[in-house]
Design a protein around this nucleic acid. Structure first.
Lengths: 215, 215
DNA sequence: TGTACATCAGTGAACGCGCGTTCACTGATGTAC
DNA sequence: TGTACATCAGTGAACGCGCGTTCACTGATGTAC
């Protein structure tokens, strides 16, 4: 432990090394702890052990930092979904594989919402459109797809497996996404938290039943 | 027009009359314009034409004001749902009436979310549990029911009309609410705003089809 | 019906806080010769 | 291989802002006599 109170992060060199990365990491940590409103530029610099204005070498404004943090959060959502998709047995019959894939997307989404509430809220708070394929690699998962695209791919499988009539496919992601997103929001940032609480995954599976049947 | 710049609201008497009401109204207006974060005590007093600290005669803190505003917002949601329920023809066969009632709850909810974005976000932001029947009359609609209870009553009709097996009834409000709430949030405060935009009501009806079929 | 007085709603001034952002600077680094 | 120097990442101090909240006060109101 350094006895001097000043530098929270010991630095051997005058230059930081990778301050941009450090600020982004601090911002993600803040989002994890307190959601989008907690992504405060001054606090990020404090955690990086740097003067407040040093941030302006790497981000044009607090907004720019928040945007980068949001992209990272979105990427984390995508990775959680991909992890869940990876558990779907590859030797399933096409119909079962398709259904299981859709469920996996939903389950991964809900799991992430519950495990990383702050990041989840940061990822999906007001602002820019994420439906458009975004070349920014921070916003996507390992497979290069956004959460929205992962859902779309899973729904496509329903069609190609012959379970979903092609004419129902357009816009189906809005319906499935709404169901799962609503449950997540009502539980983690709304009135259903105290009511559902730990039963969220269980309710989530029932919700996915409804989606599967109703799509 | 009063030419003096100071008092935004002309007051003939020294006493305000009903400052509590005025502050609450100002708070609701702020919520309408900017959501829960916009409910700022100083701005409310400014709009009421009163010194900032005058608010403390009527609200213990900013939190207390926000809580009152939230209750009023929730009441507004309930009234919107009731208005939609009132359009359901009373002479429908029980099964049709039940189905139409559930749809009306969803439609009213979505309509309100789109028409009164700020109030909607204020009503359902993080905090206390609204499932418990609340005696506070500010939180409910004309019929004395909260939005959650209105949904519950509509679902009960599905059971008594024989459309929904009773064993599926428990927890059904979580599923229906999630679907509709998710669409609302994704559109008004999330990434689907630019994508769906004005088509929200149309997508909403399709979403309600899914819920109806999937419940 | 008139007067003294207690109540308490609203005033005016001030506080400390943390925020985002700007300014002129300094000094470690890497490059050109 | 050694030295001069330009670059530019990070410093230190300061700004104005709006916020929630506290303090001692004042004066209109309604009530008791």
């Amino acid at each position: 432990m350094n006895s001097r109170p000043q530098p929270p992060v010991a630095r051997s060199t005058y230059r930081h090394g990778d301050l941009r990365r450090a600020l982004l990491d601090a911002g993600v940590e803040l989002a994890r702890e307190g959601g989008p409103d907690a992504v405060v530029l001054r606090e990020a610099t404090r955690r990086a052990g740097v003067a407040p204005n040093a941030a302006y070498r790497h981000f044009a404004s607090q907004q720019a930092l928040l945007k980068a943090v949001r992209a990272a959060s979105l990427s984390a959502v995508a990775k959680a979904i991909e992890a869940e998709l990876a558990t779907v047995p590859a030797d399933l019959a096409p119909a079962d594989f398709a259904r299981a894939s859709v469920r996996a997307v939903g389950t991964g989404y809900l799991r992430f919402a519950q495990a990383e509430t702050g990041l989840f809220r940061t990822a999906f708070a007001l602002s820019d459109d994420l439906a458009v394929p975004d070349p920014n690699p921070e916003r996507v998962g390992e497979t290069g797809q956004s959460p929205y695209q992962l859902l779309g791919s899973a729904l496509d499988k329903l069609v190609s497996a012959g379970i979903m009539p092609p004419e129902r496919r357009p816009g189906a992601e809005f319906l499935a996404w709404s169901a799962v997103h609503g449950l997540a929001m009502l539980v983690i940032d709304g009135p259903l938290g105290p009511v559902i609480g730990a039963r969220m995954q269980q309710v989530g599976q029932r919700l996915l039943d409804m989606v599967e049947k109703g799509l």
